[in-house]
Write a protein that binds this DNA or RNA. Structure first.
Lengths: 355, 355
DNA sequence: GTGAAAGCGCTAACAA
DNA sequence: TTGTTAGCGCTTTCAC
């Protein structure tokens, strides 16, 4: 029972004057009880008026709405979450938000979730698996209604914990036919193969790769290499640079390639930033693009179309990934059945002037 | 009392077999009670073993640690937060994370907070004040231990709500001597004045401004304009572009300026991306930089140093802002007294080749 | 050093 | 439609 109600005398007194002898003091904020008392209804009725207004009478709704306005009540979602076992919190795990690639996914995710009253929690794991495990516990402890992973969870320990927690998980930006739970992504192997075929089709023959050392970039470039081998184009030189990739790495990579393989005629970069670096370095060396050298990026960042020459690159609809992931999680949280657990969002080659 | 303990018979049974007649079913996850029972201690002792291990005996600690390992227990921070009125959640409000400017602040914030066991909640308000108010309630409802604002809270309604909630607030990336609570930032007016003086000192006289339409950019450019007037340099033409700023906007802006004011000799851009756009457009028009035209950016993004020519720009230590903000909030949450509530982090002009 | 009791603010289950 | 009761899983307060 509410502490104040034990002493009838106090029932009309203000909150401040209710000082129980030894109970905990509370946060001092306005609670649903305060609202209910002011409206002259039961707390649960006030709760219903706020959460399922369709289920209460006009009269009740009016009284509660008034009391809320009068007190400036803001519902405590922590308490609500504990009681209902629904936190309305979704966690997203990224290697880092410094790389602009996942930005539009996070953006779309935030927006799509906000519409349904969900909030986003951000976790950065770095590119090291060990930190990912630690972060995972911190996140699971918050009992989010869903977890969005950029990439697929490879660490067996991580998979185990996630499974044990029973929280809906969406893996993104990658592909496997056997996801942990749900997946929205695309095949990096397909990207590598498709880009090789594309450049080959444009008459290029002497390829090079500049790629970040993260797992997904590596898979793209391995696939590219293998496809080149299969097409009888020999071994493709690779410059691996540390992730997150930078413009500077791109410049250095081209400089290195000009020493080791001066006669290459096409470069596949694992990011648009890297491609920009290659282009700037080429420009400063008087190498013409696409005349002498074709350059391809990955990501189709906002600036790619506005470069000079405009960058040919691989586009992945990061917004769509975010939206779909949000949909997955909201559907699950609302208890809806979801038909398919795996969405291949695909990718496309955006042909511009640099090839 | 714990349901299971009412019936001695059940005390050794597994969780699954404890099916109360009508109580709520719980989440099914392992709880502190389960751990305590397995360790043969009281729940509160298990709690202490986990939270303040220094206060318990070796023996107790060992038993609890074992039970935790055995059960795979992950503490429920939602319940802990409710009981202790400390959520260990910090909210950060950005206009958008698409603009790369705040990225390193968010990054540093995440890192610095993670060390202390805090998690970051992300809110995107867009550049519209109305959405900010709605978002604020969603955030306050989570009772975070702190709120980090990018920019200063101008909406009176927002200020009122924030004050009423009693949550520590750090305003950032801006400056006012009278912050809502705490502040880590710098003066945009100073930036405008300083850049004008710098360009003037380099012998430039015919200025132009390309600026995003967000509030802070506007203040920088107003100050620049005013300072130019004061120096007797006449009226400075301004091209305002929508925020978030893009490379394309920069290109278009220069194109427009070349029509209206073809004889300008220096441009101050409100972002490095804008500056990059201006440089690319200049290059495609055969305008030499810095020979005919000096270009200055703002932000010192990662790529600025690697451009050709390298970009002269204004650097703000976004990481430091994030770290200081985190420190403020953690100190407050731990109940430590903080000496000063306002930190002017300053800025610096990074002189490279584009001026 | 350890434990019992009470309660954080809310909602699910049941009852009227 | 509205209310009563009993928790959600944890930590604070007080007592030993």
């Amino acid at each position: 029972m509410h502490a104040g109600a034990m002493l009838p005398l106090e029932s009309t007194m203000t909150k401040q004057s209710l000082i129980p002898r030894r109970a905990r003091r509370g946060s001092g904020a306005v609670t649903l009880h305060d609202v209910a008392r002011l409206a002259g209804v039961a707390p649960i009725s006030a709760s219903r008026a706020l959460n399922t207004p369709g289920q209460v009478s006009e009269e009740l709704l009016r009284k509660v709405t008034e009391a809320v306005a009068h007190t400036g009540y803001v519902p405590n979602r922590v308490a609500g979450g504990l009681a209902s076992a629904r936190s309305r919190l979704v966690a997203v795990l990224v290697p880092t938000i410094s790389g602009p690639v996942f930005l539009e996914t996070i953006n779309a995710l935030t927006e799509a979730l906000a519409v349904h009253g969900y909030q986003l929690m951000l976790g950065q794991s770095g590119y090291a698996d060990s930190r990912e495990d630690a972060l995972l516990d911190a996140i699971i402890g918050r009992r989010p209604d869903g977890i969005v992973l950029t990439g697929i969870m490879r660490s067996p320990e991580g998979r185990r914990r996630l499974l044990a927690a029973g929280i809906p998980v969406v893996e993104t930006w990658d592909f496997t036919p056997t996801p942990l739970d749900m997946l929205v992504g695309f095949s990096h192997v397909d990207v590598g193969r498709t880009v090789l075929a594309f450049l080959h089709g444009k008459g290029r023959r002497r390829f090079a790769i500049v790629a970040g050392d993260d797992e997904r970039s590596q898979r793209r470039h391995q696939a590219f290499k293998a496809a080149a081998q299969a097409a009888g184009l020999g071994d493709v030189p690779v410059i691996v640079v540390p992730a997150p990739t930078t413009l500077k790495s791109g410049r250095k990579a081209l400089a290195a390639l000009m020493v080791s393989h001066p006669n290459i005629d096409a470069i596949f970069c694992s990011s648009d930033l890297l491609a920009l670096g290659v282009m700037i370095e080429a420009q400063s060396r008087g190498i013409s693009i696409p005349g002498q050298l074709a350059v391809m990026g990955f990501g189709d960042l906002e600036f790619a179309a506005d470069l000079h020459p405009a960058l040919t690159t691989v586009r992945v609809d990061g917004q769509a990934i975010g939206r779909r992931a949000a949909q997955f999680i909201v559907d699950r949280a609302e208890g809806r059945e979801i038909a398919t657990h795996v969405i291949d969002i695909g990718f496309s080659i955006i042909e511009r002037d640099s090839v």
